[in-house]
Protein backbone atom coordinates (compact mmCIF):
# COMPACT_ATOMS: atom_id res chain seq x y z
CA UNK A 1 0.00 0.00 0.00
CA UNK A 2 1.28 3.49 -0.81
CA UNK A 3 1.46 6.10 1.92
CA UNK A 4 -1.48 7.90 0.30
CA UNK A 5 -3.53 4.68 0.45
CA UNK A 6 -2.56 4.13 4.05
CA UNK A 7 -3.58 7.67 4.92
CA UNK A 8 -6.94 7.31 3.16
CA UNK A 9 -7.53 4.00 4.91
CA UNK A 10 -6.73 5.52 8.32
CA UNK A 11 -9.11 8.44 7.78
CA UNK A 12 -11.85 6.24 6.39
CA UNK A 13 -11.62 3.79 9.33
CA UNK A 14 -10.99 6.46 11.95
CA UNK A 15 -13.87 8.67 10.96
CA UNK A 16 -16.17 5.94 9.68
CA UNK A 17 -16.51 7.56 6.25
CA UNK A 18 -16.06 6.41 2.67
CA UNK A 19 -12.61 6.60 1.07
CA UNK A 20 -13.79 9.00 -1.61
CA UNK A 21 -14.66 11.57 1.10
CA UNK A 22 -11.00 11.70 2.15
CA UNK A 23 -9.54 14.72 0.37
CA UNK A 24 -6.83 17.19 1.42
CA UNK A 25 -9.52 19.77 2.13
CA UNK A 26 -11.36 17.60 4.67
CA UNK A 27 -11.23 19.49 7.99
CA UNK A 28 -11.95 18.75 11.65
CA UNK A 29 -15.48 19.56 12.84
CA UNK A 30 -16.77 20.30 9.33
CA UNK A 31 -18.47 16.93 8.93
CA UNK A 32 -20.49 15.32 11.76
CA UNK A 33 -18.28 12.20 11.62
CA UNK A 34 -15.08 14.08 12.51
CA UNK A 35 -15.73 15.06 16.11
CA UNK A 36 -13.43 14.82 19.11
CA UNK A 37 -14.23 11.14 19.68
CA UNK A 38 -13.47 10.20 16.09
CA UNK A 39 -10.34 12.35 16.21
CA UNK A 40 -8.79 10.16 18.89
CA UNK A 41 -9.69 7.00 16.97
CA UNK A 42 -8.22 8.56 13.83
CA UNK A 43 -4.97 9.23 15.71
CA UNK A 44 -4.80 5.58 16.76
CA UNK A 45 -5.44 4.49 13.14
CA UNK A 46 -2.67 6.76 11.83
CA UNK A 47 -0.24 5.49 14.44
CA UNK A 48 -1.07 1.91 13.49
CA UNK A 49 -0.85 2.44 9.75
CA UNK A 50 2.47 4.27 9.86
CA UNK A 51 3.90 2.65 12.99
CA UNK A 52 4.65 5.96 14.71
CA UNK A 53 3.83 7.73 17.98
CA UNK A 54 2.24 11.15 17.70
CA UNK A 55 2.78 13.67 20.50
CA UNK A 56 0.34 16.15 22.05
CA UNK A 57 1.08 18.97 19.60
CA UNK A 58 0.78 16.67 16.58
CA UNK A 59 -2.60 15.43 17.78
CA UNK A 60 -3.94 18.91 18.50
CA UNK A 61 -2.60 20.38 15.26
CA UNK A 62 -3.98 17.65 13.00
CA UNK A 63 -6.96 19.69 11.88
CA UNK A 64 -7.22 18.56 8.24
CA UNK A 65 -6.05 15.86 5.87
CA UNK A 66 -3.53 18.31 4.37
CA UNK A 67 -2.25 19.12 7.87
CA UNK A 68 -1.99 15.39 8.63
CA UNK A 69 0.33 14.97 5.63
CA UNK A 70 2.46 17.86 6.82
CA UNK A 71 2.75 16.37 10.32
CA UNK A 72 3.43 12.86 9.01
CA UNK A 73 6.19 14.20 6.77
CA UNK A 74 8.02 15.29 9.95
CA UNK A 75 8.09 11.57 10.76
CA UNK A 76 9.80 10.90 7.40
CA UNK A 77 6.64 9.74 5.69
CA UNK A 78 6.40 11.20 2.21
CA UNK A 79 3.39 11.79 -0.01
CA UNK A 80 5.19 12.96 -3.16
CA UNK A 81 4.01 10.19 -5.46
Amino acid sequence: MSNQQKLTEAFSQGLGIESKQVTDALTYNTIPEWDSTAHMILIAELENQFNIMLDTDDIIDMSSVAKAKEILSKHDISFDA
Binding site: S36, T56, I59, I60, D61
Partner: peptide, 9 residues
Amino acid sequence: VSVIDKAFW
Protein backbone atom coordinates in the same frame (compact mmCIF):
# COMPACT_ATOMS: atom_id res chain seq x y z
CA VAL B 1 -13.48 23.66 24.66
CA SER B 2 -12.57 20.09 23.88
CA VAL B 3 -9.32 18.69 25.31
CA ILE B 4 -8.10 18.21 21.75
CA ASP B 5 -8.35 21.94 21.20
CA LYS B 6 -5.24 24.04 21.79
CA ALA B 7 -7.37 26.50 23.79
CA PHE B 8 -7.94 23.83 26.46
CA TRP B 9 -4.21 23.58 27.20
